[in-house]
């Protein structure tokens, strides 16, 4: 893309604006707790120990906190992603062997801008240039699973340890599921027309080169993503707040606790047809955990909701025969179940 003109003059102003934005962000984050507390308990006169007071306090603190974190993380991920494109990922993965290829693909899946609506042209582009099927799958599994919204919500509601666990195990599932699918040699279950497609020469559009471009791109990402998910954040936290305030302690222990062995596969099965973005589901799940659900079960449920969804299956059905869709769901689902049991056993 030809950038029409360079804008050297505006660059210093951009940095000034960034610094101001960062300062405002830090200030807002600092004052969240006293401010939300003052509103809930002084202004509204609610008792922090009451059901209503604890639910409202939770809601008023968490909504702005999560929206702030979400904006920051989407911005930072946007900057990182401005360095990557699907075309570059394809180039890096072309002719790669399995194993290393799976690891690289799953990692690139995280940092490359991806929208499941583009899954088909991406799949065609990869397969056409000789990226092995299993390696392609590693990319297609990790790209939606480890995304900035999930990261921001996990970090905000569970802390960095759980967020890091999610990223690490998500990568693990993407790498191993892709590797297994590759080992099974299922190329015959790719839709026939895929191998007949003649792809044009892939264009390496030079996108965002200057820092001005990268920052513009990241700001646009914040607008798009936060603009889209904020209602889910509010709805999710509202449900979470209600659970927090009204549901008795240990209510979930019997259903989603460690002792219920069947809870992990059940959570994964329930999660597949559910399609919510991470923004709506993570606050609810966090509240459930407070009421006795175990981390492994909760993690498995979130992964299943986020990584395995009906809309994605419908999109992939255009390039895959149903047998391969079934294998895909089976292998990834099993991987997620394994993650669930692992954490229930270890923690």
């Amino acid at each position: 893309m030809s950038k029409v003109e360079e804008q050297p003059a505006s660059a210093p102003w951009l940095w000034v604006k960034l610094v101001i934005a960062a300062a405002l962000w830090v200030a807002a984050y600092q004052y969240l707790e006293p401010l939300s507390g003052a509103v809930s308990y002084s202004l509204l006169g609610l008792d922090p120990a009451s059901h209503l007071g604890s639910a409202v306090g939770f809601f008023l603190y968490d909504v702005p906190k999560i929206l702030l974190l979400l904006s920051l993380i989407v911005f930072l991920v946007g900057i990182v992603r401005s360095f990557f494109t699907p075309e570059r990922a394809r180039k890096a993965l072309g002719g790669r062997r399995e194993g290393i290829g799976n690891v690289l693909a799953a990692t690139l899946g995280i940092v490359t801008p991806f929208c499941s609506c583009s899954a088909v042209p991406l799949f065609l582009g990869f397969v056409e240039s000789g990226v092995p099927l299993g390696v392609t799958f590693s990319f297609l599994i990790s790209a939606p699973m480890v995304n900035e919204v999930a990261l921001a919500l996990l970090f905000g509601m569970f802390g960095w340890r759980v967020a890091a666990l999610y990223v690490a195990t998500g990568l693990g599932v993407a790498i191993s599921a892709g590797w297994i699918i590759g080992r099974l040699h299922l190329e015959r279950w790719v839709a026939d027309w895929v191998y007949q497609v003649r792809m044009g020469e892939v264009q390496l559009l030079e996108g965002h080169q200057s820092w001005t471009d990268r920052i513009d791109y990241a700001v646009q990402a914040v607008r798009d993503i936060v603009g889209k998910v904020w209602p889910y954040v509010i709805a999710g936290i509202a449900v979470g707040a209600a659970i927090h305030g009204y549901v008795p302690e240990d209510f979930m222990a019997g259903i989603m606790g460690k002792s219920a062995w069947w809870s992990v596969p059940a959570a994964v099965l329930v999660g597949i047809p559910m399609y919510s973005n991470a923004a709506g589901i993570i606050p609810v799940v966090q509240a459930l955990m407070e009421k006795g659900a175990s981390l492994g079960t909760v993690l498995a449920f979130m992964m299943s909701v986020i990584a395995l969804s009906l809309p994605e299956v419908i999109i992939l059905r255009r390039v895959l025969k149903w047998q391969l869709i079934a294998v895909f769901l089976g292998v990834v689902g099993t991987g997620i179940i394994a993650v669930g049991y692992l954490f229930n056993a270890v923690l």
């Binding site: 088909v120 042209p121 027309w193 003649r198």
Partner: peptide
Amino acid sequence: DYKDIVRYGIMATPGLVIDGEVKSAG
């Protein structure tokens, strides 16, 4: 049609083509 889309060598939609030349993708 995906077959026609990838003929332009793009891997992310939407793509914009003016007089046969790809201007943007994704």
